[in-house]
Design a protein around this nucleic acid. Sequence first.
DNA 1: GTCTATATTCTGATAGAC
DNA 2: GTCTATCAGAATATAGAC
Lengths: 201, 201
Amino acid sequence: MSTDLTTEDKIKNAAREIFMKKGYAATKTRDIADAAGINLALLNYYFRSKEKLFQQIMMESLTVFFQHIQNVFNGEQTTLEEKFSLLASSYINQIREQPDIPIFILSELRARPDEFVSQMSVQTRLKDSILFDQLLEKIGKERMMEINPLHIMMNLMGLIVFPFIGRPMLERMGEVDDAHFDLMMEQRKELIPKWIMQMLE
Amino acid sequence: MSTDLTTEDKIKNAAREIFMKKGYAATKTRDIADAAGINLALLNYYFRSKEKLFQQIMMESLTVFFQHIQNVFNGEQTTLEEKFSLLASSYINQIREQPDIPIFILSELRARPDEFVSQMSVQTRLKDSILFDQLLEKIGKERMMEINPLHIMMNLMGLIVFPFIGRPMLERMGEVDDAHFDLMMEQRKELIPKWIMQMLE
DNA sequence: GTCTATATTCTGATAGAC
DNA sequence: GTCTATCAGAATATAGAC
């Protein structure tokens, strides 16, 4: 870790790492200060409180995490399958760099149902997206009752995200090591869009 | 809630509910005592500590959650598709009664990587199951490199569990209410086994 | 077994010197 | 801006009466 960072950024980086790994409630401000290599008082000097520091980290995480979605959802040049492919690839890459980000976001979102949802809901409305229109066209009206487009979105997100969330469980059940897990995630970049397209046939 | 329970069970029920909803770190022993309608001292009298109480709840949750898997995995009378169908139906029913159980288990498992995994890994080894054999037969050796059976298990678990974990997000993105969500979960009991079988073609 | 009161430790936040 | 020292409150756990 390079040391030519502002104190504020050192604190934020440490906070992000620990919040992600342990969650809000289990994180102690002293741990953050230690990891950042600064004193506890400085944390409050820069961010006023643990709560405010957390909110900042969380907002940024949400923004980063949903950044791609908006663009991909509304890409005008890409086909349906290309959109699935782009989402799978970019998210698998991103989560690999921050493996705890999905479970972090989802569990903190559960703990605070109303605090951050507005932030997201503005960003991504399925019904207003080009992806949604393409889905409708592909599925066809006669099958719309049976297979709601939201099913497909659940499946897409679940297929991408779940292996990372369930990793400790899956590694035991399947007896896979880290290298093998990485290989499988790489495979899934191509498999997931294929699977989703099969569901639409 | 009937009141003819032992004090120990009253505490355990209250603890289970609050641990599930808020997670270990955010749960206060006083909240459990209040919810159980007893005094704080009694909690320590029966369970010695918050930690020990949690371990007991967690162990039982894991056992319940993985109870079905073992049986379904090794059913000798059921086909592959029937196994997928049984797993989807029973888990969707079970999670509906305790909606927080997946995120609870997965987030606490992340926080304590080594404490409980042994408990699970004993219960469920994919490679030793009849389901695994059936999968191998269906997939065929020539496709085994491309599509590891573990992919299929990840997909099955993800398709079942993710909608509940991602519910706050999905409800916003898709603008669905509770009734609609329930309907979709009901649909998925039939859709998921169908989707998984398609992946194997 | 159950309670009230209390001990003890932990934790977020601040005061004040430099 | 950064630190040391400390406060105030919260939270787990126990002592001891009933």
